[in-house]
Design a protein around this nucleic acid. Structure first.
Lengths: 109, 109
DNA sequence: TAAAAATACTCCATAGGTATTTTAT
DNA sequence: ATAAAATACCTATGGAGTATTTTTA
């Protein structure tokens, strides 16, 4: 994986991919539109992948952008599940599993 | 998910989890030992999860740390696959799939 | 004492802000 | 004329370095 990309980029990308509108996405992310534009451009440059087509007054996902929207969303969701389950383990809520984890987060859901 | 954690933290965590030695892990990551210690502490504070037991002259993973080592490693690998496949799509190497993606990166492997 | 991680400080790279320009209708 | 994104420039947060301290076999 590119060693410059951070979660920030992925989250910003998903926001723009959902809104297809930089200003609105920036607003939702509580950052400025130029800041968002820069981070997306940085992500595109770093990956060497064009994520969006910027037209007249319309932003569209490229084909690769569509793929990444779906897959990255799933990946971040999975990571979120992992961290939430780790927190449960840490806090000892699920006592009987605390020292017996065998591999799947789905066991607690 | 915690909104402060970045990939950096996860990569640093995996390095320490593998070496169980901050100085060696820092060396491998090409950063200083204090820098690494700080990032790991930051990750622990942010998640509210203790990842390592720092003993005498021995660092050990906590139970939750062991879980996270395994799961985060898998998650980052999956993300790496996603980005690599996206790059292939973008560069048009896999021409017949370029406009027909349906959901699984395993199709090309 | 020695080997390791944690602190204290300093510095600087870069994320992000404001103002403005560009672009396309 | 207007709505949107990109660019220019500036600020300042925090990642990272060096030096030092703490800790415990």
């Amino acid at each position: 994986m590119s060693n410059q990309i951070e979660f920030r980029h992925l989250k910003y990308f998903l926001a723009v991919a959902e809104d297809l509108h930089f200003r609105k996405a920036a607003e939702r992310l509580y950052i400025s539109q130029p800041g968002l534009s820069r981070q997306i451009k940085q992500m595109e440059d770093d990956l060497g992948i064009k994520l969006f087509e910027r037209h007249n007054r319309k932003v569209e996902l490229t084909e690769v952008g569509k793929y990444l929207k779906k897959e990255i969303k799933g990946n971040l969701k999975r990571l979120d599940d992992i961290l939430n389950y780790a927190k449960l383990l840490n806090d000892g809520i699920d006592g009987n599993l605390k020292f017996g984890y065998v591999g799947s987060v789905t066991k607690i859901s």
